[in-house]
Design a protein around this nucleic acid. Structure first.
Lengths: 322, 322
DNA sequence: GGAAGCATGGTAATCGTTTACGATGGCGTA
DNA sequence: TACGCCATCGTAAACGATTACCATGCTTCC
């Protein structure tokens, strides 16, 4: 019984007689032998491992994404190395570096910035990439995301129809494509409806809770505060709601509120919060499958799914509170 | 310039002249060379990678844990391979198998069951383990967790003092130590206070949302429903609140409610939800550091932190609703 | 000037697999 | 019997780093 036979009987790359296979199994069990995947990886130049690099796993959107990616990768036979960048381009860069060093087979990334020079290195290393939710300029890789345009447009129209004339947006960083898209369509749609959007009505956050809280606090402190506020993601919505609560303003009587990104919690709150829901499960699964297709030599296309507006109780006509 | 020189200049294991180091760096950049960590791992028999095996990353407790573990591991120079078991012992077993194969240096695990024979294999393979939140029998490894006894006892007493005589618990699986601990102390404390706990007042869930919803629905359908309900984790609390909302029972007027595991959302709900808060950040960091200490040859002890009761608005005297 | 000592450079074995290639043995057929 | 073929099996060379060991050249000091 040679090493080759053992290897073959484990990998099944060539036929092995049933009797030998049985002997190998028995001996392995007896000796506690387990094939060493790193030696295997060195030889076959593949690790069966994918890198998942996301800005913030604490963001329910990304935790759900992580779960979906992990599950899809698992059924395809891949493991996941997790990288949490905290929206920090430098940490992102260093993570990409160690992941490349560890010879992961491919990367799913939601880059912190749309200008990410270090991603060129990944491309140069020949490691397939797929963008998830956010893309970066200058890198030719499939992007898997939900198109929020329709839904954001719909919510602006909805608020306008309710009679709001002073609406504010707590936007994400304009350097991210999703931040830019949400802010952009909000502004476009507002203009299309003949609404004014003075600068103090658009506050730029960083997709984190703290920035949402600050933005809402500032908004409420304005001489003429808005009658409706839209937050560009769930975490900033959480912060904004916290600020509103602290300030004692009641939703929706005194302030209408809606948010990008849905959450089970939004449905349970009183009032329940209107939000734009993304098909997260599908996004994560599609990202993993797209990457695997790349790894198998395909040239997969980008996929764009639709986001959906879920109307609940958090918006009404303005002026109810006075 | 030999391979040895290059290796030394990258790893710094032996002195190298500044001039040579510079030449190596320059040449690497020019050639796009990057050290291959899998070859290195094969040689030094260490991967600088930790396995994190958790039942459900969607559970806010575990996502926060994952973030903390990732961050602590990162500063220690370790990467994380993520394994989501979905509370399924078979998936857990297969995950451990592939992680062992991939030669991870150590494992942080929150096992699905307290009887986990496959963990013995990990021990046999000589891979250090640390238990997080939940432990398994028969494996001698440090466990890092929060002790919920005091807090659970306190909440029972609190509800009793409010005048509740029919209180119910939606418990976790008794096969998990945290499930057992929470149920056990609840029952003990109830008995100590002379309260009766008929079987229909204790519903066993599986720590997932759906089971919480079902349990609450059944509880509310009882001829004599409880006046207070305690859910043994956040996900089941979420389900229970959903059920309560669907059934139209108002909290706290008709039903007092509290939960193990806190969440930012609990604070924002109306009423805000009283809950037992665990020091998650500390737990995750301690787990990672404990494991690293093991890897460095130490014999770290278990660490037990305290959970804290956070009282909010979701509990009042019984009978307010009638 | 020459030996000792030190700093640095180079060679080659090793880690545990995979796999190309060749060897072996059994069997059917002419 | 002799031969070819097929199914298996074994040998040895990779994969890309680390590192023990040895070689080299330079300084220093007598």
């Amino acid at each position: 019984m040679s090493v080759a036979t053992v290897s073959r009987s484990f990998s099944g790359s060539q036929p092995v007689s049933a009797e030998v296979r049985e002997r190998v199994r028995e001996a392995s069990r007896r000796l506690g032998y387990r094939p060493n995947a790193v030696a295997r990886s060195l030889r076959v130049e593949a690790t069966k491992t994918l890198g998942l690099v996301i800005p913030n796993i604490t963001n329910p959107f990304f935790t759900e994404v992580a779960r979906a990616v992990e599950a899809a990768a698992w059924v395809e036979g891949y493991g996941i190395m997790l990288g949490n960048t905290d929206e920090d381009p430098r940490k992102e860069e260093r993570y990409l570096d160690v992941l490349l060093g560890k010879q992961i087979d491919g990367i799913i990334i939601s880059p912190a910035r749309s200008e990410s020079p270090h991603l060129a290195e990944v491309e140069a290393a020949g490691v397939p990439v797929v963008f998830l939710d956010r893309a970066a300029a200058g890198v030719d890789a499939p992007v898997v995301r939900a198109d929020g345009r329709l839904a954001v447009g719909a919510i602006v129209e909805y608020l306008a129809n309710l009679g709001h004339e002073r609406m504010a947006i707590i936007s994400g960083p304009p350097e991210t494509v999703s931040g830019e898209e949400r802010l952009g369509t909000f502004l476009e749609e507002a203009e299309r409806l003949g609404m004014e959007m003075p600068p103090e009505m658009v506050r730029t956050g960083d997709f984190r809770q703290e920035s949402g809280e600050r933005a809402m606090r500032d908004l409420l402190a304005l001489e003429h505060p808005p009658t409706a506020v839209f937050a560009a993601n769930n975490l900033m919505a959480l912060g904004a709601l916290t600020a509103a609560r602290k300030a004692g303003v009641s939703i929706p009587a005194e302030l209408s509120f809606a948010s990008f990104d849905d959450s089970t919690w939004f449905e349970l709150m009183r009032p329940s919060i209107s939000a734009i829901s993304q098909p997260i499960e599908e996004l994560g699964g599609a990202a993993a499958r797209t990457l695997v297709e790349s790894l198998e030599g395909g040239r997969p296309a980008s996929t764009t799914l639709a986001a959906e507006l879920v109307l609940r109780e958090s918006c009404t006509e303005p002026g109810r509170g006075r």
